[in-house]
Write a protein that binds this DNA or RNA. Structure first.
Lengths: 205, 205
DNA sequence: TTTTGATAGTTTTGTTAAAAAAGTCAGGAA
DNA sequence: TTCCTGACTTTTTTAACAAAACTATCAAAA
């Protein structure tokens, strides 16, 4: 029975990988269950044996990506000399994550307003984890005595994450799209680092 | 001939007012030229005598609103003791502007990605004006010696305006919509003021 | 110069049929 | 019992097209 579950898990993993590739290259609406099944040389019906429906499959891929992302954060975020390094690291990892999965998020751009609740649960889960980790970093820094004590570290980190999230390219007379274009990601990343620099200074004595 | 132009201007003004009301209550796509004409007890054809088409009419209203907004900024922005007051004032006025014209911007939410170029020209014009005014305030503050000199004040102000623009409500497990809902505007406003506070401190010695 | 009724042209909306894709299921293989 | 499939049903997307609603134009009147 344990062996059976192992095998099942491996198969699920294979399906997730194939799905990831398809979603990454063609986006959600342009990949069909038949194509994913074809890539794996299995029947479409088998996909439905492992996953209840297409959206759940997409969500499973997303959950996997999110967990990988959070894993990297958790593994490194304790190891920094100071708060700024922690935020810079988070922003760098986040940047890499978005760049390498850019097309995967076509789904977000298309549905925009009304995404399924489960998606939002994952987004919120990631956000909460980021918040907790960075909040901890803030507290550590306060104990070190290099920044002023604050009432509510969570609120503070939330504010900075929001502000960072809002950074868009807008080099004057440029249309600011609400979802950044791939070619602007580097510029946005640079601006984020600058914001972090100033923000953290604003917290110091 | 001068009198004729006066009369024409008054009429144009009346049309803009009526259009503003309609756009404010029902949004762009839900107001028809017939309705605007009806409100003014004139024929629809006359609207086309004064304005080339519907989108130009909307844009004319928007330009008027923008100019009013910029006027307030220009009139007051020289009168502040310090940089923070200037930014707080800008943010407050901006907040009031959005709150009182909220439904007018339905047009933005609907078209989202592909707004006509003329709209973007106005947006950029407003942004440039804000940038210039606040940039001047930064330079003044540097001369006063209360903040550190910076390479490029424009870039700095742009960064803060971007960051402020990105502030969204997100009180955990809340869906972050890209266009803020009316009921969240106050909370967003408060967060903006907090960000300004920290950001400006980050610029000080 | 200003205004309008009539009308031309365009976009939106609604309907329907065909095609494509999602999703189900009885039953066979391991 | 678990894993898997072909054939099938249901749902969604697409295309074509007519009706309705609305934008935009224009000759002619005030």
């Amino acid at each position: 029975m344990a062996a059976g579950n192992d095998h099942q898990d491996i198969k699920r993993e294979k399906i997730l990988e194939a799905s990831h590739q398809r979603f990454l290259h063609y986006g959600y609406s342009k990949t069909t269950m038949n194509e994913i099944a074809g890539d794996l040389s299995m029947s479409k019906a088998l996909l439905y044996y492992y996953f209840p429906d297409k959206s759940q499959l997409y969500i499973a891929v997303m959950r996997k990506l999110s967990n990988d992302y959070l894993k990297v954060l958790e593994d490194h975020l304790d190891t920094f000399k100071n708060l700024k390094e922690a935020f810079v690291f988070q922003t760098n990892i986040h940047h890499d994550f978005i760049v390498s999965n850019y097309n995967f998020f076509d789904f977000f751009r298309l549905n925009e307003q009304n995404l399924p609740d489960t998606i939002w649960e994952i987004v919120n889960q990631v956000h909460s984890a980021e918040l907790a980790l960075l909040s901890k970093a803030v507290k550590t820094e306060i104990e070190r005595g290099s920044i002023k004590p604050v009432d509510n570290p969570d609120e503070l980190v939330d504010l900075l994450l929001d502000a960072l999230h809002g950074i868009r390219v807008g080099a004057l007379s440029q249309k600011k799209t609400n979802f950044p274009r791939k070619e602007h990601l580097e510029e946005i990343h640079d601006k984020k680092l600058l914001l972090i620099d100033i923000f953290i200074k604003g917290l110091m004595y």
